[in-house]
């Protein structure tokens, strides 16, 4: 009887001890192990979320930037000296700046200017980088070595500083800003295109073209450059946030776009002194728009990059 009782209690105690505590002990040990991810965050789900949120945000911003000025004939350039530095309210949803311009309209107009300038800069610097990279990779030898040293040299100067030198000497025009950004940001594209050309040169179809009697120029133009286009396009899109950032920084410092082009940087630069007077709302909406737009563009670009060229993930993380 005593045997039975003890055995039965043991029997009952084994599952009771094993039931709740054993899995708990196992789980806590697994949790405590550093670097073990939880199963719940799949990278696929996160990537899809990033893509959807990024694309939706971009679409909303684009609609806002294009449509908002047209709705009811509103114009962001209207000055209203009766309503200077108004805090957010029913008349002006996000308040007014120190000349009475409506900040909602102004900020979206600024976003449009900033994005257009950024697209222009990204295209120019990608083309410049693609040419340098393609020449460097296709010609090789001393040309390659010299061009790569040039890339190293440009990278040794802080980009904003070189940009400041350029806009300071050729001040007050759109061309100066575009040149300042394009001349400092082409190096990444040049590196990517060069390494892509170098790897493509080993492919059989290039050998076939050469043995078929194609000239070096024809090989580059017909066979190498088209194959490099997807890479170059991705790096152009990934350059967009950088270009926006650079243009905004220059304009903020008063060195960028001329004052009549109200880019986000110009609005923030003008609003600096107003912040000291307590008008914090002047910088809030433009900054939020800037940050959201930057993040949305880089989110979409990152998804595109991961889909198209997974093996170059680290290289393209500009």
């Amino acid at each position: 009887m005593a045997d039975l009782v003890t055995s039965s209690t043991e029997d009952s105690s084994v599952p009771s001890a094993g039931g709740p505590t054993a899995p708990a002990a196992w789980r806590s040990a697994a949790r405590r192990r550093a670097g073990t991810p939880r199963a719940s965050i799949g990278s696929g789900r996160a990537a899809r979320l990033r893509w959807i949120v990024g694309a939706a945000t971009l679409a909303a911003l684009a609609v806002g930037a294009v449509l908002l000025p047209w709705l009811g004939g509103l114009d962001e350039r209207v000055l209203d000296y009766a309503a200077v530095r108004r805090p957010p309210g029913p008349d002006h949803l996000f308040g007014t700046d120190e000349t009475g311009r409506d900040l909602l309209l102004l900020a979206f107009a600024g976003l449009r200017v900033s994005l257009l300038v950024a697209v222009l800069c990204a295209v120019v610097s990608t083309m410049l980088g693609a040419v340098v990279g393609a020449v460097s990779g296709a010609v090789g030898g001393w040309t390659d070595r010299l061009l790569m040293r040039l890339v190293d040299t440009v990278n040794a100067v802080p980009h904003l500083l070189l940009g400041i030198v350029i806009v300071a000497l050729y001040r007050g025009s759109l061309t100066a800003v575009v040149a300042s950004i394009a001349l400092t940001h082409w190096t990444t594209v040049a590196r990517i295109v060069r390494s892509e050309v170098l790897s493509l040169r080993q492919r059989p179809y290039i050998d076939a073209a050469i043995s078929g009697g194609a000239s070096r120029w024809r090989v580059v133009r017909r066979h190498l450059l088209p194959a490099v286009v997807p890479q170059a396009a991705i790096s152009a899109v990934l350059l967009l946030p950088h270009a926006v950032w650079h243009e905004t920084a220059l304009s903020f410092l008063g060195l960028g776009l001329p004052p009549h082009m109200a880019s986000i940087g110009n609005i923030l630069g003008d609003g600096r002194d107003a912040v000291l007077l307590g008008a914090w709302w002047i910088v809030v909406l433009p900054s939020v728009l800037l940050i959201v737009a930057t993040l949305a563009v880089s989110g979409v670009a990152a998804t595109w990059r991961d889909r198209l060229v997974p093996r170059r993930r680290s290289e393209l993380a500009l």
């Binding site: 905004t248 920084a249 910088v283 900054s287 940050i291």
Partner: peptide, 11 residues
């Protein structure tokens, strides 16, 4: 990463 330093500074 998307917030420029001057926005952070103004904030």
């Amino acid at each position: 990463e998307g917030v420029p330093p001057f926005v952070l500074a103004l904030g």
